[in-house]
Amino acid sequence: MNVFRLAGDLSHLLAIIILLLKIWKTRSCAGISGKSQILFAIVYLSRYLDLFTTFISVYNTFMKFVFVVSSLGTLYLMYLKFRATYDHNHDSFRIEFLLVPCVVLALLINHDFTVLEVLWTFSIYLESVAILPQLFLVSKTGEAESITSHYLFALGSYRALYILNWIYRYVAESHYDLIAIIAGIVQTILYCDFFYLYITKVLKGKKLQLPA
């Protein structure tokens, strides 16, 4: 554990809390992509199966548990409790276009051809693109509420901080994992356009609105 990883994990946790609070307080999931949330739930469920096989630390187990439970809770709020507020007309991204390539890639490029390892690899690939339906939804409606922008900023920062963690670990521990690193870089690049809008607009008190 180093400061970059801890900051990344906390940023990830913050994103999840912001999203749940937004939905709970406003009693609405307007502007949130259910498709992205389904993909994140698949990511956590396929990656954290090692909860049953490997113990790393109390911290590790606790965070995995929180991510799995909160992603299922988010799905419950979106698709059951506040279903009427779900913006499904704009949330039209076809997730099979992400799922199928990630399955194929995980079968082809992995560290070890075992069930758990291929599922882990699949989850890493899928996480890197899981935000696309959300970004697609924002681009379709042309705007995002500030609370949604804060959520996206925290979620995007997490993998960016992990890149610093990976640089640190390579230097300090000679440890590296190319699959995680390359997917993490792809994931962070997908947020760059959003980061730019967030810094130039949302932080100056303006609403995130895309140019017409």
Partner: peptide, 10 residues
């Protein structure tokens, strides 16, 4: 690459 038998990151 560095083969990982266990993934210690989240």
């Amino acid at each position: 690459s560095n083969k990982e038998s266990q993934h210690d990151e989240l």
